[in-house]
C-alpha cells in the first residue's frame, strides 16, 4: 500500500520535472526571439548611423532618402505617427471609456450579454477592412465637409484606427471596472450619490490603473498600426499638424520601402531599420510607462 503511494508520488514528481523543463524551453524561445529581433535591428541601424549622423536624423525637418538631395530627418514620420495617435485617441478613448462605463455600470445584464461579444468580434476584424472603410466611407465624408482635404489624409486614417481600437479600450476598461467591489458602490450610494457620481467619482478612479493601461495599449496599437495608414493616410512624409493633408507614418514608410525594390544593403534599405528601431524604442517606453502606472495605482481595494 505504502509502496504504491510512494511510487505514484515519484512518478508525479517526474511528470512535474518534464512539464517544468518544457515550459522553461518555451519561455527561452520567446526570450531568444526577442533578442534576435533586437540584434537584427541593431546591426543595420548601427550601419545606418555610420553614414547619417544621429543629429541629422533627429533634427532635420525633411525625410527624402530616395531623392536627391537625400534628407534623413525622421521628424516628419514621427509627426505622421503622432497625428494618427492623436486622432485615433480622440475617437477611441472617450467612446471606449464611455461604452465601458455603460456596460459595467448602466447596462442591464441582458444588454451586456449581447453587447460584450459583439464588441469582441469587432476587435477581431482585420485592419485591412478598416483601411477600406477609411478610403470608401470616412474619406468621402471628410472631403464633403472639408473640400480642401486630400484623397489620402491623416484624419481619415486616424479615425479608422480609433474605431479599430475602441473595443480594446472598452473591453479592458470594463474588466477593470467590473473588478471594483460592490461594497464601494453601495458605500457611495448610501452617502446620497447618483449613479453618475458613483460611476465617475468612485468606480472610474478605483479602476484607474486598468483604464490607463487600456489607453496606453490603444496608443501602442495606433503607433504600430500599418495597414490602415498605408491605405488611407498617404505616403508623403511631411512635418505638418494639418490632418487633412497626405502624410506618412513610421510604419507606413517601412512597408513602402519593404514592398519596393530598394537593393538590400543600400542606405535606403538601412533607413527602415533605423525607423524600426525608433518604433521599437517608442513602444518599449510606452510599455514601461504603462507598467509603472499599473504598479503605482494597482487595485488598492
Amino acid at each position: 500500500m505504502n509502496k504504491i503511494l510512494f511510487e505514484s508520488k515519484s512518478k508525479m514528481q517526474k511528470n512535474e520535472r518534464v512539464i517544468n523543463k518544457t515550459l522553461t524551453i518555451l519561455g527561452m524561445v520567446s526570450i531568444f526571439t526577442t533578442i534576435g529581433i533586437i540584434l537584427s535591428l541593431t546591426e543595420e541601424t548601427i550601419q545606418f548611423f555610420r553614414s547619417v549622423s544621429i543629429i541629422e536624423f533627429f533634427t532635420s525637418r525633411k525625410w527624402t532618402p530616395m531623392f536627391e538631395p537625400a534628407n534623413y530627418g525622421v521628424l516628419p514620420l514621427v509627426m505622421g505617427t503622432f497625428l494618427i495617435v492623436i486622432f485615433s485617441s480622440i475617437i477611441s478613448i472617450p467612446i471606449g471609456l464611455g461604452s465601458a462605463i455603460y456596460l459595467s455600470e448602466y447596462a442591464p445584464k441582458k444588454v451586456r450579454k449581447i453587447l460584450k461579444p459583439v464588441l469582441e468580434i469587432l476587435a477581431g476584424i482585420p485592419s485591412i477592412v478598416y483601411g477600406y472603410f477609411a478610403l470608401t466611407s470616412i474619406t468621402p465624408l471628410i472631403r464633403s465637409i472639408f473640400p480642401s482635404a486630400s484623397v489620402f489624409n491623416a484624419l481619415s486614417a486616424g479615425i479608422a484606427v480609433g474605431i479599430m481600437t475602441i473595443p480594446m479600450v472598452s473591453s479592458l476598461s470594463e474588466d477593470a471596472m467590473m473588478a471594483v467591489p460592490d461594497s464601494l458602490r453601495l458605500g457611495a450610494y448610501a452617502l446620497g450619490s447618483t449613479k453618475f457620481e458613483v460611476s465617475t467619482k468612485i468606480v472610474v478612479p478605483a479602476a484607474f490603473s486598468g483604464i490607463a493601461a487600456s489607453f496606453i495599449l490603444s496608443i501602442s496599437r495606433a503607433i504600430g498600426e500599418t495597414m490602415i495608414v498605408a491605405m488611407a493616410a498617404g505616403s508623403t512624409p511631411k512635418l505638418t499638424l494639418n490632418p487633412l493633408e497626405s502624410i506618412q507614418t513610421m510604419t507606413g514608410y517601412i512597408v513602402q520601402i519593404s514592398l519596393g525594390d530598394v537593393p538590400a544593403g543600400s542606405i535606403g534599405y538601412k533607413t527602415i531599420f533605423a525607423v524600426g528601431t525608433l518604433l521599437f524604442a517608442i513602444t518599449l517606453i510606452l510599455n514601461i510607462i504603462s507598467r509603472n502606472i499599473v504598479k503605482k495605482y494597482r487595485r488598492a481595494y
Partner: peptide
C-alpha cells in the same frame, strides 16, 4: 440617503 446615513458590516472606505 443624504439624510439617512449608513455604516456597513465590513468597513468600505473608498480607495
Amino acid at each position: 440617503r443624504r439624510r439617512v446615513g449608513m455604516v456597513f458590516q465590513r468597513p468600505n472606505p473608498f480607495p
